[in-house]
Design a protein around this nucleic acid. Structure first.
Lengths: 341, 341
DNA sequence: CTGTTAGCGCTTTCAG
DNA sequence: CTGAAAGCGCTAACAG
């Protein structure tokens, strides 16, 4: 089944027309008669020529229909996160309809120069772990759309994280509660730990800090003390990191009345832990999540959480990308009143 | 921030050396002295040349470091499925380490000719919904690895679905039980329905039929009647399809004693449904899943299911791809003895 | 070890 | 509407 790939030139020779005519038949129907075009196209199909070589087209035309989706972290982690998955789902549905191809690119990679020459642009989901990527993206001129963070003058898609955190906290906290916070990527540490006096990260994780701000505003209004010993840093939602934090916070005496979690995965681990310790949720312990993943609604008791549509976020980002709009977008969220807080 | 991209030729001119030397400095260190190479590389960095244009390299060299992951369905659906997500995770971790890029490609797309010219090969996860893709893949000569199905002479990665289904069924069924089966993609219908006498699909979904075979073998050995009225077809695990089937099967009188589900998502929907109807699991109803997703182990009661590592499957497929091996692989599975059957 | 040169396969003016 | 020709930016022979 070796078949030496036909080139446009071969085909032109075989059909006795010029290469330009073949090229036009495929790319610019207005440049020849419909009849001739049909004739050429069907002849091509017959002899097994499926159109101009794409690699050559990319070089010649300067675009490829490939869009890079730059993830915050390594692809591996991102793909297994339900929130990121839903985002990718939204992006891909829009791109697919537009005939674009989706290339996944890791935010901890060396340099976008590996791909910048053959993609048509970038959608960045979260600030790339490697800050070099952000700089490079700012210094090239293929379009970029950022999500959940801002980068130079490129348009972005966000929700109002401060307001969302404020509202969910306001909903769950009872006046004077002891409140603990299980935060995501608050400081620069690869391990689960309490924040204490560590300097807070900023650029890379603006979103966590907006949420923290919201929580604190609500806590103040409810007359709760803010105590850095009750704020945890969790490097990743998945795996043991959340479980460790859950165990630590539940073993404190006196136990906090309300625990605000910066992701549903964290909250679900905590909930599982609390239930297995026979803690009464929500009577003696209230728990809130963030994101509104399917599992949070499928599990019993249902999690009280901030519901944001990651799928819509993905669609929005892709549409923004395709439209070349320069306008950033702020997407809505809702509070899902579950049974945990 | 307009910056007219430098070309290799510009750089050669500026540094007063030939283009070949620049090219060699980047691609073939053995072709020049280490000193000269260093000199050139650092000069390039200084003037802002980040290496040869990749689009041109793809055309010239005939390869791109891009690997296409062809999904069974549209990307949208696949990415939101935990099993597929774990598979993608495994693939991407291996490819990333090998410096390859990952392009997601939908199995319901028109033709692989859209991408065949600029990718280095294909990993196919499940038989593509559009059978044309399979034919095309068989007629081109870039490497292909298939997963969960076979295609021509290309190497594949599988588990023994028949044996797995047999074992889980054997584990859950009590002699003489009425057994129902909630199957995935058994017939050609976009809706949830019972199979009755509809002709079974084959090629596209060989895997479902291997599972069905395994279930039936166990049922025979346990002395259970096989009744097509108790076999459901579900077009997709996600969404309402599973819930509908769950409701239908639970409302039958007399209710089946054991229900075998071809995915964990289906089983979890069923379990949720049964619990809310206060059916006693596993005393009066036994339920089995298939896949062993995280949620099945996190939920209470824990689901009894076939545990296969989709991540390993992905890694294995990627390694097979990279090694150009022609040997197919059969991966192991285990029975996870949960609390539902 | 370095420079020259012929393409990789295509698109797109520009004459005809 | 068609054909000839000039590259897109690079790599790999091949001479030097």
């Amino acid at each position: 089944m070796k078949k030496n790939k036909l080139t446009l030139k071969d085909v032109a020779l075989q059909l006795g027309v010029s290469t330009a005519t073949i090229s036009n038949a495929f790319n610019r129907p207005d440049q020849l008669s419909a009849a001739k075009r049909e004739e050429i196209l069907s002849a091509c199909k017959r002899i097994g020529y499926s159109g101009p070589n794409k690699a050559a087209q990319i070089l010649r035309k300067g675009h490829s229909s490939i869009v890079a989706l730059v993830l915050a972290d390594n692809i591996e982690y991102m793909v297994s996160d339900p929130v990121a998955s839903m985002f990718i789902k939204g992006v891909s549905s829009v791109l697919q309809d537009a005939g674009k191809h989706l290339l996944l690119y890791a935010g901890n990679a060396e340099s976008v120069s590996e791909i910048v020459d053959f993609v048509d642009g970038f959608i960045c989901y979260g600030a790339p772990e490697n800050p070099v990527l952000g700089q490079e993206l700012n210094q090239q001129d293929k379009p970029v759309v950022t999500v959940d963070f801002d980068l130079g003058d490129w348009p972005s898609v966000n929700i109002d994280n401060e307001a969302a955190a404020y509202q969910i906290a306001k909903h769950a906290i009872r006046a004077g509660d002891d409140v603990a916070i299980l935060g995501l990527k608050l400081i620069d540490s690869p391990t689960t730990c309490r924040v204490y006096d560590s300097p807070l990260l900023d650029t890379a994780t603006a979103i966590s800090h907006r949420r923290l701000d919201g929580y604190k505003r609500a806590m103040k209004e409810k007359g709760c003390k803010i105590n850095n010993e009750l704020i945890w840093h969790i490097p990743e939602s998945r795996g043991n990191y959340s479980r460790q934090a859950a165990k630590e916070v539940l073993s404190i005496s006196p136990r906090p009345h309300t625990i605000l979690c910066m992701s549903d995965i964290i909250a679900l681990e905590l909930l599982q832990c609390a239930l297995s310790m026979e803690v009464d949720v929500p009577q003696t312990l209230r728990i809130t999540g963030f994101d509104g993943i399917d599992e949070a609604k499928r599990t019993r008791p249902q999690l009280t959480t901030v519901s944001q549509s990651s799928t819509d976020k993905g669609k929005c980002a892709a549409e923004l990308f395709l439209s070349f709009s320069k306008e950033s977008v702020v997407l809505p969220f809702t509070i899902f009143e579950g049974e945990t807080g």
